[in-house]
Amino acid sequence: MSTLLPQLTAKDFASDQEVRWCPRCGDYSILAQMKKVLPELGIPREKFCFVSGIGCSSRFPYYMNCYGFHSIHGRAPAVATGVKLSNPELNVWVITGDGDALSIGGNHLMHAIRRNLDINIILFNNQIYGLTKGQYSPTSPRGSRTKSTPYGSLDNPLNPLSVVIGCEATFVARSVDVDTKHLAATLTRAAHHKGTSFVEVYQDCNVFNPGAFYYASKKGEKEDNIVYLEHGKPLIFGKEKDKGVRLNAHGRPEVVELNGGISEDDLLFHDENAEDPSLAFLLAQMRHPEFPEPMGVIRNVSRPVYDESVRNQVLAAKELHGDGDIEQLLNSGDTWVVESDQA
């Protein structure tokens, strides 16, 4: 029997809740792209589940018309682990922010990734604590002057991509909130990956940290500051597509002009499937303004998936021992009988 799924649209994924982000918040754009991407996946709406922690981005599940769990600060990956273990057919998305994922929830992020749980983690990075009104976050640049650091922050920021590549993430990508086509394509790729997909989205907090990523989002500027990755293609960027990245004699990346002596063949070619994470890490380390920052899928490899393995172990145990025999379990070990007095 085959019932054709009704073709869903973005509208089907809009919940009846009023969206309460600040006007012009980057989150709106991400929400719009998500609603656009999900109907294309051919998965019934009831199979989607969004799990979030605490923060502006974590309100996301309320605005999606599917199953959702707005949990507690930093714990979304752990909650999602429970959801996936109890209900493995669900398509689970974790929505998180830089404070939620990398500060209070760093431990859970790390472990969800190393287990390779089949979930999609979308980290909205705005380099600031928005919901608590403007403290610096673990991704704020050193020296950030914020409400809690009037003299400038003193700690070095984390690079989200370096962190997750260090955790052996199997799918790592980056996009920008307002780069709608690229964002939609990146979310789609993440959805199709089996295992943990991690996507960092540069997201503008226009109230507490406006313009943090204009270099990567503004037309006329971004062309020189970001490089779109394509598997098997050289790293070329610039308004005129006249610049590239190549590896120098020491294996370090350098920006070169594509004219005269240097041709495309001399450039660094992207290989998202490289088993060795060195290239992915090298790309993650390319930061503005020294380098164009890579956008797109940085790493995409296949590893055993945790929730599937958990399920398989249960099935294997049933195969080996049969469905649990209650009688046998109750009587395991030594037993003895006390006769009644009459006996």
Partner: peptide
């Protein structure tokens, strides 16, 4: 995480 996963599993 154990407690959070327990909440997630109950929701699931």
């Amino acid at each position: 995480a154990a407690m959070s996963a327990t909440c997630g599993a109950a929701f699931g």
